[in-house]
Computed example of a mutant assay.
Amino acid sequence: MKAILTLCLFSLSFASFGQEKMVEVNGHNYNILVQGLEKRKANSPVIIFENGMGVDLGNWKKIIRQVSTFAPVFAYDRAGIGKSDKIFKMPTVKFVAESLHDILKKLNIAPPYILVGHSLGGVYVRSYAGFYPEEISGLVFIDPADFTETKNDWNDIFRKMGLSEKKIDEMLCNRLYQPNQKVDSLNFGPWSERRVLTELRKTDFAEISSLPLPAVPLLFFVGGKFEVPVAQRSKDYDQEVFFHVKNSANMERWRKLIHSTGKPGVLLYLTNAGHYIHFDDPASIVDNMRILINRVDR
């Protein structure tokens, strides 16, 4: 009987934690999850989670509960993702930053913030930090889409692999300059986020590089496990070699970015984890975020 009661209490606790709610901001409903704000100390940071491309806040299910034991947390679905309302407006970095800012203001969740972004979410948190640098205490990037990358950086990967310039030009064209595809109104959220990332790559992320980077600790987690199945690999080049060369180039730029802040930072390369590091090695994410909180919350 005692074991059954314990199990029931655990289930109720988990359900309470996982409870999401809708909040209306600027005439649209956003799905959010907040935990631990009632225990927040004055001026201590709130950890804000930004999902990857087309992914809802369930993306954080393996770490958010543990993180909430040492810091208040906030997660949400961007417009057109998960349970949030669809908005037929391109999710530019400015639009997403302003929308998140308005949501946090509506909920009376005041800064400072530590922003955590996975994949495309890394692009969005870097942008938010540029638009609102005074609100940021730290930035955590989990295998982010590389907002420091230029088209020449991308081409250099293939040059190192010995591909011809003609082939490199063809692949770059296929990656960025395909004729405009028909708008996918049914899946507008994920479709539009992909389009925004493509447009940013065309300009070498000029909009983001023009934004200030606050002098705060930066944490980068890089997945070192190559996961593309053989049947899905490129026929034009060795995709596994490409993966490792690209990771090395990215990490060199990110190392310089960490040093540029003048603050302590982390660049962690995890050979046991793929793109979803917070699924493959949640302990590494949680442990380092705990260290970051202890450092900035003094």
Rank of each mutant, 00 (worst) to 15 (best):
V93W: 00
V67I: 15
E50L: 00
Y276K: 12
V196P: 01
L219K: 07
E135G: 06
R175I: 04
R40P: 06
F242G: 01
T148Q: 10
V296P: 02
Y177T: 08
S185D: 03
R78Q: 10
I47V: 14
K106N: 13
A145G: 10
V123A: 08
I32N: 00
K263N: 12
E227L: 07
E98Q: 15
T198G: 09
H275S: 09
S127I: 04
T271R: 13
N272G: 06
T150A: 01
Q239S: 14
P217D: 09
G189N: 01
Q232C: 04
Y76A: 00
S127W: 03
A75D: 00
R253V: 02
N51R: 03
N26F: 02
S11K: 01
V216E: 05
F131W: 08
A273L: 08
L37E: 12
E240L: 05
D156W: 04
L107N: 11
F74E: 04
A75P: 01
F220R: 01
L268S: 12
G262P: 09
V245C: 00
F88R: 04
V25Y: 07
R126I: 00
N59Y: 10
V23H: 04
P72M: 00
M289S: 06
S248R: 13
F74I: 08
E50N: 02
A15C: 10
M1Y: 08
N272Q: 15
E38C: 04
E165W: 03
F279M: 10
P144S: 07
Y269T: 06
P179R: 08
S11I: 14
V125E: 13
R290E: 13
T92C: 07
G18A: 08
L120N: 12
V241I: 12
K21L: 08
S84N: 06
E134M: 10
P91Q: 09
M161T: 07
A110P: 01
F95T: 11
L176D: 05
A42N: 10
G54M: 03
H244F: 15
M289W: 08
I136T: 12
L197Y: 13
T148P: 00
V116I: 13
D56R: 14
P111H: 10
L107C: 07
F220N: 05
L292R: 05
I168Q: 09
N108L: 02
T6D: 07
Q181H: 09
F220G: 04
T6F: 09
G262C: 07
K151W: 03
N51A: 14
N51P: 01
V96E: 14
P72R: 01
V25E: 04
K106D: 14
G52K: 01
M53V: 00
L176F: 14
P264A: 04
Y237T: 04
T6G: 05
S13C: 07
T198P: 06
H278C: 05
R175N: 11
L12V: 12
Q232P: 02
L104A: 09
D236Y: 11
K106P: 06
M289F: 09
F158Y: 15
D169E: 15
Q19D: 11
D156G: 09
N288V: 01
V46D: 03
P133N: 13
I103L: 05
D238H: 05
D85I: 08
Q239T: 11
G18R: 03
R126T: 06
H101G: 01
S11A: 15
V46E: 03
W254A: 10
F49K: 01
K182H: 05
